[in-house]
Amino acid sequence: MASNNHTGVNHIVFYLLGIPGREDLHMWLSIPLCISYVLALLGNGLLIFIILTKSSLHEPMYLFLCMLAGIDIAFATTTEPKALAIFWCNDREISLNGCIAQLYFQHSFFISESGILLMMAFDRYVAICYPLRYTVILTHALTSKIGVAVFLRAHCTIFPIIFLLKRLTFCRNNILPHTFCEHIGLAKYACYDIRVNTWYGFFVLMSTVILDIVFIFVSYVLILRAVYHIPSQDARHKALNTCGSHVCVILLFYGPGIFSVLTQRFGRYIPLHVHILLANVSMLAPPMLNPIIYGVKTKQIREQVVYVLFPKHR
């Protein structure tokens, strides 16, 4: 499996091990993985169908939610089918181009989801701080432009990584101890210095995800300040309740990822298979649970779900 020192970069094949040291559990681990993936597809697909077909939900908040559901489907699909192929069929082989394509879409959809969460925070800020101007500020045209901008930002920032990886020649071990490809995880097998890859990856993280977190935090500080000045306690509770679903989704999206990064950085005694399982949880938990959170906590969506699934019990 080891690659030759002078192997051309376009001819290398890598091998994904899945969960190293726990190969005997691959079949059992595949069961919750498959169930979670199917639930993510069904839940987000139903959410998209309801929002697009119900004109009463054609508002910025629900349109952003529709974008989020679409990104969740794409995000989970970048890695989970290959992981299931490893667990079920022992299909470990992946070409260099396939590995780069997988990590490209994985990272770009992750940044896209972070951007949509920021836009949803902005939506809640406008709705609570400027309720009378909400429909004037957040028009359908602006909502569409924001969605396109979020998509372009993600793909434009990740696109250079393709060339940063393509310039490398890989002459080290080509066995990847994971269920999917990662930028630095792949680059570290190169023969040459990868400091450019490392610094660019850091730049992308700081200029997108970290910046989004800062702006989301600022948005909620302004929201809480506005809510604090509402005289009616009922109105204050109602305003905060509209943010509940979004806060849960934010914690679910950033929480596992931050925890996974911290365990990799400081948890030197944590086994490798635990790191890989945490990475898979952070990939699947948001797509699977986001539709449930919004379905439970948002009355309009809950009513439409009941109508679609149980029309006779409306």
Rank of each mutant, 00 (worst) to 15 (best):
H58P: 01
L251Q: 10
L309G: 01
A127R: 02
L142A: 02
H273W: 15
L68N: 10
N241W: 07
G21V: 12
T77M: 08
Y125N: 09
F180P: 04
Y192T: 12
C243A: 12
V227I: 15
L262Q: 14
S245Q: 11
M283F: 04
I161F: 01
P20S: 14
S245E: 12
P131Q: 05
N280E: 14
V227E: 07
L152M: 12
K54M: 02
G98Q: 06
A239F: 02
C66E: 15
F180W: 12
I213A: 08
C248I: 09
L68V: 06
L138Q: 03
G147H: 03
A76S: 13
P311H: 10
A2Y: 10
C89K: 14
I73A: 06
V204Y: 00
I162N: 00
I161L: 05
L52F: 13
E303Q: 06
V306T: 01
H6S: 01
H26A: 13
V308N: 00
P131A: 08
N5D: 11
D24K: 06
G8K: 06
I100L: 02
N241H: 11
G43F: 06
Y15R: 09
L52N: 07
A235M: 07
V136Q: 03
R167K: 07
P32N: 10
P60H: 04
M27C: 11
M67Y: 11
E303K: 02
E93L: 08
I50G: 00
L57F: 08
Q102H: 01
L205E: 13
G21H: 05
N10D: 08
A141M: 04
Y200P: 10
E113V: 00
H229K: 14
P32C: 12
S3V: 14
V38I: 15
Y125E: 09
Q300V: 03
R167Y: 03
F122H: 04
C99N: 03
F64V: 05
A279Y: 11
T79M: 15
V196S: 05
I301H: 00
F87C: 11
P291A: 00
I116D: 06
D91S: 14
L289W: 09
M1L: 13
V13K: 10
Q264L: 15
H107F: 10
P20L: 15
G98K: 05
V13S: 13
A285G: 05
I100Y: 01
R22K: 15
I128Q: 03
C99E: 05
L46S: 07
G70N: 05
N290W: 02
A239P: 10
V136C: 03
I223L: 08
F159N: 00
N197T: 11
F203E: 08
S260R: 10
H178R: 13
N174S: 14
V209W: 07
I276V: 15
S56I: 09
C99A: 15
